[in-house]
C-alpha cells in the first residue's frame, strides 16, 4: 500500500518505506566523501581573483593590440627607418663574408668604406638596401 502525503491538496505519493530508507541510501553514498574541505578546488577558492586577473590580462592584450594597430596605420614607414645598419646587414649578408671580415688581417680603422662595400657587396646583398635612406643615418 502506498503512503499518501498528508498535504490536503497533494496528489503525489511515494513507495512504501521510501522516506525510511532514503537517509541510509544517501549516507551510503556519502560515506566515502569527506565534507566539502577536500572538494574545495583552487578555482572555487580564488574564482573572483582569477576572474580579475583574467580581465586585467585581456585588457593589457587588447590595449597592446589597439596601440599597435593605430601606430602602424598612422606611421607605416617609421618602423623601416628605425631598422639599424646591423639588422639589414645581418639579414642580407652571408655568414662567410662576416667571418672573412673578422678574421682578415685588416685592422678596423684601416677599412675604407669602399673596401667594406666590396666585401659585403656579394651576390647575397641587394644594392637597394645598401643605398637606401637607412644607411645615411
Amino acid at each position: 500500500m502506498n503512503q499518501k502525503y498528508t498535504h490536503k491538496r497533494q496528489p503525489f505519493t511515494v513507495p512504501d518505506g521510501y522516506f525510511q530508507q532514503l537517509p541510509n541510501n544517501i549516507l551510503q553514498q556519502i560515506n566515502e566523501i569527506p565534507p566539502s574541505q577536500s572538494s574545495k578546488s583552487l578555482f572555487i577558492i580564488a574564482k573572483k581573483q582569477l576572474a580579475l586577473a583574467a580581465a586585467f590580462i585581456s585588457f593589457v592584450f587588447i590595449s597592446y593590440g589597439v596601440f599597435h594597430f593605430i601606430y602602424n596605420s598612422v606611421k607605416p614607414k617609421q618602423n623601416i627607418t628605425q631598422q639599424t645598419f646591423d639588422d639589414i646587414v645581418l639579414a642580407n649578408v652571408d655568414e662567410s663574408d662576416i667571418v672573412y671580415l673578422l678574421t682578415t688581417d685588416i685592422k678596423p680603422e684601416e677599412i675604407k668604406p669602399e673596401t667594406l662595400e666590396n666585401i659585403l657587396l656579394d651576390e647575397t646583398l641587394n644594392d637597394d638596401i645598401i643605398y637606401n635612406d637607412n644607411l645615411n643615418q
Binding site: Q29, I33, P35, S36, S39
Partner: peptide
C-alpha cells in the same frame, strides 16, 4: 550529496 560536498 551536493549539500554534503559543499557544506563548508
Amino acid at each position: 550529496i551536493k549539500a554534503w560536498q559543499a557544506i563548508y
